[in-house]
């Protein structure tokens, strides 16, 4: 699936929720699933700092595709992370660099991506794109 297709599937999935409680309960459920990151990567190196909720992000390359794993100590943040990872992980650097996040807007979670929210999501996305860019530069050389 392309990034667009995956984003569309998230939007469809959220379309069934007609009140905020169902939506957030679902996010919390997603957030409570097993750690999205290998415990050994949940350390200072992968910590995205300066945030109200802490976020850890790990990235690695597999056959020209980037595999992201991440975690957070706040469960709603983690739920949103799991959506972001579902949409972005497994794509090529070029696709990740070009990706937009309007799907979060469509499911009514855009406010969580505000830089003033300090939940680490904005820095996480920045970090994901930086990683993709670095990988692209490396393979172009």
């Amino acid at each position: 699936m392309t990034i667009q297709e995956k984003a569309k599937s998230v939007i469809d999935e959220f379309a069934i929720f007609d009140d905020w409680m169902d939506k957030y309960s679902y996010l919390i459920e997603l957030g409570k699933e097993l750690p999205l990151i290998d415990e050994k990567h949940k350390n200072q190196t992968y910590l995205i700092s300066g945030c109200q909720s802490r976020v850890w992000l790990h990235a690695e390359e597999n056959n020209g595709k980037i595999i992201f794993t991440a975690d957070s100590d706040a469960v709603i943040t983690k739920g949103i992370i799991s959506l972001l990872i579902r949409v972005l992980s497994g794509s090529s650097p070029a696709k990740i660099i070009a990706a937009d996040f309007s799907f979060l807007d469509e499911i009514g979670l855009k406010a969580h991506l505000s830089p003033t929210r300090a939940n680490g999501l904005v820095s996480m996305i920045k970090q994901m794109k930086l990683y993709a860019r670095a990988l692209q530069l490396k393979s172009n050389r």
Binding site: W20, V75, N119
Partner: peptide
Amino acid sequence: IHPYDLGTLLDQMGVAVRTGT
């Protein structure tokens, strides 16, 4: 329970509180 999660849900219910440091 993480304060950030509580603050987010309280906000959904119209209650403005501060969470964090």
